[in-house]
Design a protein around this nucleic acid. Structure first.
Lengths: 164, 164
DNA sequence: GAATTTACGTCAGCCTTGTTGACTTTCCAA
DNA sequence: TTGGAAAGTCAACAAGGCTGACGTAAATTC
């Protein structure tokens, strides 16, 4: 075993190890989205709707611009999705009280029901994976993912974490 | 601390922990693809081209149908991407010797160069994340991702692992 | 009070990347 | 020799990104 000058074993940083990690991310993300995708297909919604629903559920009353910065898309793109969700009665949009330019977003009962269905499916897979891997692996999993984020995204992620 | 009947602490399986994992996957995947996306933007290619290039590099001489099953898209979708890569001289397609129906795919020098550029960027981020998290965390990371895959994808992933 | 900025919505058009369906060509194997 | 598999192609369509331009209402600043 070749150790680094500092004494730390760096075999886990070889290109081969990194490539395995890259491929693991690719295949795992497919699994990660597979169940919600299956539920949404055929009901006129897609992954974009799922993301909006998730974060509105997560932060009820969030504004459009806040959602924009979390999702990292243009307002035109988000608006198209939000429009259908509002028209279909899954999301409610409320004019702000202190700042009437803002729109605060909430899930309706119907929206909550779909969110539940989607997140139940996604959590079930996550739970199975967590259970199979064990608590120590889960801690490592989260550490690596967090380190992989762009700083701005890490801020968003941590802001959500605190809030929850 | 509430332990499970079996004596195992299951706090890491709470809905809250699972939700954090879900959000971590979402934000981390954005970071994961950000650097290659940046390189590809403006040069007529997208993530689909990156994926094709990656797996052709990974398994030189792979057939179209093998690539299809790895990427999980339709042949029409893959063909469009492959067409532009072949036309632009990044990929070479060779009629099979033992089975002439098959097309074996290889990267040209130009293709290898782009693959290198893309994977260098992606590996750099991965390496930074791995280094920040440490070897134990990396092992856990890979364990959880592997457990999250669909069985068929896990087979693909492991086949690639052995090969490499 | 007027001008500017901010938050949001919307129209129009474009691109990538996914889909289905229909069809042809090539070639292996029964 | 014929059926079926592998590959490629054409056409059409949808989701969901993007840019640019424009409008409106409300807040802020000058």
């Amino acid at each position: 075993m070749a150790d680094a000058p500092g004494g730390e074993n760096l075999l886990y940083l070889t290109d081969e190890q990194l490539r395995k990690g890259i491929e693991a991310m690719f295949f795992a993300y497919r699994g990660f989205t597979a169940d919600p995708d299956r539920i949404l297909e055929g009901m006129n919604y897609g992954r974009a709707h799922h993301r909006a629903i998730h974060f509105i559920h997560r932060s009820p009353g969030t504004t459009v611009s806040n959602l924009l910065s979390i999702l990292g898309v243009t307002k035109q793109s988000l608006n198209r999705v939000l429009r259908t969700l509002i028209d279909d009665g899954l999301v409610r949009s409320e004019k702000g009280k202190t700042d009437a330019r803002e729109r605060h977003l909430f899930l309706t009962e119907k929206g909550v029901a779909l969110e539940r269905e989607l997140s139940d499916a996604q959590r079930a897979r996550m739970r199975a994976a967590y259970r199979a891997a064990g608590p120590a692996a889960v801690a490592g999993f989260r550490q690596v993912l967090e380190a992989m984020m762009d700083p701005e995204m890490r801020r968003q992620y941590n802001r959500l974490k605190e809030g929850g």
